[in-house]
Design a protein around this nucleic acid. Structure first.
Length: 348
DNA sequence: ACGAGGTCGCGTCAGTAAAG
DNA sequence: CTTTACTGACGCGACCTCGT
């Protein structure tokens, strides 16, 4: 299997998890399409086929929702029925529930045509369409968290800079010093002043000051940095998006600046090449387009990171729910066995 | 030591839904 | 209609494990 093929398969697994769960719930839990790793693991839990002995157990009352007493009607082999109060009195607030509900609805839509029993070939396109409309992980988990107390809420992971009040610029952290790849030092002072020093130079341009303002024009979370270069003919403005930290000056006629995450040393994208005056010439338009593209890529990069983080958290929640259900399942089986022993005394 | 296979994280693109 | 946020898919590189 090729590398990307493997990759694809692995990723598809996650995407299929929800759908397979639905299928197993819909038709009695006989979906065996994926027999690998996490998917298979999840399936065993969410399907009911791992508990053959429960076939004779029916739950009394249709309103078996959260909080209702878990009274179970156990039908014994002798035909006798017994009302049983369960070991697990109240269904625990599950780690994850609404995703299942959502996907059940989805599956119902997908299977409205009952005559198509042979639709093991659910149109893959349709499937993809359905799945692509699944709400975001953050939405799902936040819904859950409002649903029950046991569910961790996905917050926007507030990094230190994000925890600062919105009017405080990202760079207004206690003085931080970065060294650029060109050897320059960038110091970010408390007041939002950025100082760029060139230790290697003979002192002619030893310090350059950047001041930051937060007037309304930029999008929230962004800071306008006014760059007052000594040799520049005018002040330049460019955005520094909230989650990023700064600026890397490069040598040359057209100094360029790069955004860097404070914790990584990797340059993350050129933000702007300083270009004086208005944007009218084709070259300037091209630069503007490039700048926009870089900005978009940078945002998307961040979004992708965040998305992956949420996804991981989502998967973790699913896994912990699996654990909870496993325990419940085990207890129910034990309970059933106990009841069987009690209610069918040995005749010999 | 070396190669193959597996896993993980990243950056990017493309498509979609929601917001403005 | 445009912009923005989100996420699946893809390709890539890094790292690890295992068999030879």
């Amino acid at each position: 299997m090729s590398k990307c093929g493997r990759k694809k398969y692995f990723k598809t697994n996650l995407r299929q998890m929800t759908m397979e769960t639905v299928e197993s719930q819909q038709d009695g839990g006989v979906t065996n399409s994926v027999a690998e790793s996490k998917s298979a693991h999840m399936q065993t839990q969410t399907g009911q086929n791992s508990v053959p002995t429960l076939a004779q157990v029916s739950v009394a009352g249709s309103g078996t929702g959260r909080g209702s007493p878990a009274v179970t009607l156990v039908q014994l082999p002798s035909g006798q029925t017994v009302h049983v109060r369960g070991v697990i009195q109240t269904p625990q607030p599950s780690v994850i529930q609404s995703p299942q509900i959502q996907t059940v609805q989805v599956a119902t839509i997908a299977e409205t045509d009952e005559s198509a029993e042979s639709e093991d070939v659910i149109d893959s396109h349709k499937r993809r369409e359905i799945l692509s409309r699944r709400p975001s992980y953050r939405k799902i988990l936040n819904e859950l968290s409002s649903d029950g107390p046991g569910v961790p809420k996905i917050e926007e992971e507030k990094s230190e800079e994000e925890r600062t009040p919105p009017h405080i610029a990202t760079m207004a952290v206690p003085t931080s010093i970065y060294q650029t790849s060109t050897g320059q030092y960038i110091a970010i002072a408390q007041g939002g002043t950025i100082q760029i020093s060139n230790p290697g130079s003979d002192g002619v341009q030893g310090l350059q000051a950047l001041t930051m303002t937060n007037s309304g024009a930029p999008p929230p979370g962004a800071t306008i940095v006014q760059y007052a270069a000594q040799s520049a003919d005018g002040t330049q403005q460019f955005f520094v998006p909230g989650s990023q930290v700064v600026v890397q000056a490069a040598t040359g006629d057209m100094p360029t600046y790069q955004i860097r995450a404070p914790t990584t040393a990797l340059p993350q994208g050129v933000v702007m090449a300083a270009s004086p005056g208005s944007l009218h010439s084709p070259q300037q338009l091209a630069e503007e387009a490039t700048r926009k593209r870089e900005l978009r890529l940078m945002k998307n990069r961040e979004a992708a990171k965040e998305c992956r983080r949420r996804k991981k958290e989502y998967v973790k929640c699913l896994e912990s729910r699996v654990a909870v259900l496993e325990v419940q399942n085990k207890k129910l089986i034990e309970e059933l066995e106990t009841l069987k022993d009690i209610c069918s005394p040995k005749t010999d």
